[in-house]
Amino acid sequence: MERVDPAAVMAPPAQQTRSLSEPIAFVVMVLALVIAPYFFYPMFVMQALCFALFACAFNLLIGYGGLLSFGHALYFGWASYIAAHLAKVGTISFPIWYGSPKWHWATIPLPPLSPELAILGGTLAGGMLGLIAGTLAIRRQGIYFAMITLALAQMMYFFALQAPFTGGEDGIQGVPRGKILGVIDLADPTNLYVTVLVIFLVGFLLIYRIIHSPFGEVLKAIRENEARAISLGYKTDRYKLMAFVLSATLAGLAGSTKAIVLQIASLTDVNWPMSGEVVLMALVGGLGTVFGPVAGAFIVIAMQNYLAQIGQWVTVIQGTIFVLCVLLFRRGVVGELANLLRIRL
């Protein structure tokens, strides 16, 4: 039995000791992102922003719910496919069964959709997949939860490999960027950058709000001690499922945006190394920190872009970082920094 320190129980909850460190860090981050395209290749920054949102969504689950999903590529990759398909082709076909021996294909003839609708469609798809996978995965805890999410993601990887609309090994290439609401032309680099930045910031602030809401507090309570949260009357399974669906939806938003920005959806986005990569981003930046996943995503994507010429060694370096982080820097870059400065980040 753990002994409970009475002082810890009496101490005011964390959110009442509101510090300025997070708002200040947020302003610094926004300023840095506004001037970033003048110093770095804008395409790199936009790619990193998509992955930063993905990592933040993943971190919502592990950092605040204590749930390690090892299959987050599922929501990111499938949302990416759906968004790319909606933007490029539009037509939706799905099999239905009338009771006759054969399946029939029902087709909804849609024109190629505008980017905002494509992204919305991809995001919703991410959320739906999250609802299904989450319902199954939360039936087991800890290590099993990780294995189940990984196995479900692998299953959907095989579906992506076989489904006709995904284009198999080629993926969906040449996704048109189009015009938002028929007005804002995303072919223009400035428009595209501002759009991606706005999507990222909206997602980021939403996650920030979720973490600091009463819902987020209950989630942290479940992470610390699920049995006690149950004994206090919380239906922990509902909270965990809600967190899972939110995380998957936001991962879907990241994946859809990526499809429009990079104009491609491919098997790389749904395969298991992608699930590992997002874990690495959150781990490097700092699990359970607000800004950590953003820093982690920029570090990992920069590493991939600038070390691309050394080929397979990138995987080896990523593996080494995993090992070092687990053994020596479990707080991650931002977590260590926050600890050093004694602030919350």
Partner: peptide, 28 residues
């Protein structure tokens, strides 16, 4: 041996990293 007192998840992450290293070296 340094992980036994920590959350199970760290064991999974560390061994995942080791798998990446071994596979990466072999593929190289």
């Amino acid at each position: 041996q340094w992980l036994y007192k920590l959350d199970h998840l760290y064991g999974l992450l560390l061994t995942f990293g080791l798998a990446l290293i071994i596979e990466g070296v072999a593929r190289n």
